[in-house]
Amino acid sequence: MPLQVKRLLLVFGFFIGSMIVLIHFLTPDSFYQFGHYRGKALDEISNHEAKYVDVKSCAMCHDSIAAVKDSSFHKSINCETCHGPGYKHIEDPEKNKMDKPQDREFCIICHAKNPARPQKEIKQIDAVEHNKGEVCITCHNPHKPWE
């Protein structure tokens, strides 16, 4: 074998060897635990705090309002859809109040007339003409809209 090839092979061997050593030390512990990724990443992702709590937690204290809502057209809606995430409110109900959207703009997010909205799923109004300037909740109880 010519000398220059021998030298080249030596350099190659050194490179490959050092790569193997580096890979051994730089690969995190849980890599390849389940696949080509850090197995511990799964725990890290699942450790995030859940901000939206379950509707059962709302009904523990607000059972009467929950019952009213469940008897009305809005029964399929979760409390937190309108009132926002409740993880802080559960810890300290006095200090952390839930959202209480009062504006007309909030109701028409769902109820403004739009031909793309399926008619049978939702009651729609002309957002401009329907009782101009009035706030929806003066006539409609948001927990029981038809009373």
């Binding site: 799964l42 992702i45 699942s46 859940a50 979760n78 769902c110």
Partner: peptide
């Protein structure tokens, strides 16, 4: 993540929980 952190706690993903029409 399909709210992986919620699935592991036995909760539904946030987007599915708040959907008013299911």
């Amino acid at each position: 993540t399909l709210c992986y952190h919620r699935l592991k706690k036995g909760l539904d993903p946030a987007c599915m929980m708040v959907c008013p029409t299911g």
